[in-house]
């Protein structure tokens, strides 16, 4: 496996001013690092990777890495990525998006991207909070937890992102945490290789906002929590629902092959062109 210094030299932008914007202890760097390790393991050409993001802490990920990078507007990474992928189907398109970006403001785009089954890999960095704006509750903030806009406890029920995207039609759904780095790399690798719309939900931590207001301890404590609540799907399948209460099932949760959007559009082009040629033949 690639060493950290090789990883930095190969994939980080040499002409970009560092340090990055993330807080000490943040989980985003771990996820980004393991995404790069997955890309390296697959030996993908940097010129053929487009890395697209929305707004928020996660949205800042692309600027640091040496791909074709597109930092879009809040919630809109997926439709930008959809246009790009359709225009350049040869590109491997990866999307980085947070829980608020993907499932609140971008929720409509997310479900429709799932439904279309376009060949894009979406990594959802789920830290249960709007971090960049200072810790407001998001669609995944657990019921009863606190945030700066629900100091007395969240009365909304959270989305289960993996279930949401599966129901919407994604053809690959994986979930893991920023603690389980090897599993994270492995799932991202498989998601990239999957032909169709793939989603990797990564449970991670925001020690600065969510962690502090909910008294979750340090970043290390939050990582330990991820270790404790995660149950691999192979084990979870044998457990009864009561045992699984409060747990997070990880692993590849769903994978199936269905016709991919760009490939289907190619057949539309073929049909339309043969129709046009027939008509031109007749008019002659």
């Amino acid at each position: 496996m690639i060493s950290n210094s090789e990883l930095v030299n190969k994939y980080f932008r040499h002409n970009k001013k560092f340090p990055h914007i993330w807080c000490p202890g943040c989980g985003i760097g771990t996820i980004l690092g393991n995404m790069l390790r997955a890309i390296d393991a697959l030996a993908l050409d940097k010129n053929e990777i487009a890395f697209v993001s929305g707004i928020g802490c996660t949205g800042r990920a692309p600027v640091y890495v040496d791909f074709n990078t597109l930092h879009t507007t809040h919630g809109r990474a997926l439709p930008f990525a959809t246009g790009l992928k359709l225009a350049r189907p040869e590109l491997k398109v990866l999307v980085a998006t947070g829980d608020g970006d993907a499932t609140a403001i971008g929720g409509n785009h997310l479900i429709h991207a799932c439904r279309r089954n376009i060949d894009i890999t979406t990594i959802i960095f789920n830290n249960y909070i709007y971090g960049m704006t200072g810790g407001q509750y998001s669609p995944t903030t657990p019921h009863g937890d606190k945030a700066s806009t629900c100091k007395l406890g969240n009365i909304e029920r959270p989305f289960n992102i993996s279930q949401l995207v599966e129901a919407a039609g994604a053809t690959f759904v994986g979930r893991t945490t920023s603690y389980h780095t090897l599993q994270l790399q492995n799932i991202i690798k498989k998601a990239i290789m999957h032909k169709g719309f793939s989603v990797v939900e990564v449970i991670t931590h925001c020690p600065t906002t969510y962690g502090r207001i909910n008294k979750k301890g340090s970043a290390v404590d939050m990582l330990k929590w991820q270790k404790e609540v995660a149950v691999d799907k192979s084990r979870a399948d044998k457990m009864d629902p009561k045992e699984l209460e409060g747990k997070i099932i990880t692993g590849i949760l769903m994978e199936k092959q269905l016709p991919e959007f760009c490939e289907q559009y190619d057949t539309i082009i073929e049909k339309a062109q043969s129709l046009k040629n027939n008509q031109q033949g007749k008019s002659k």
């Binding site: 697209v52 597109l70 879009t72 507007t73 809109r76 997926l78 439709p79 930008f80 990525a81 959809t82 246009g83 790009l84 992928k85 359709l86 225009a87 350049r88 590109l91 409509n108 785009h109 429709h112």
Partner: peptide, 12 residues
């Protein structure tokens, strides 16, 4: 989404 998609395609 429509304008987002054409921006993505234009960048392509």
């Amino acid at each position: 989404g429509s304008i987002a998609a054409i921006i993505g395609a234009s960048i392509g």
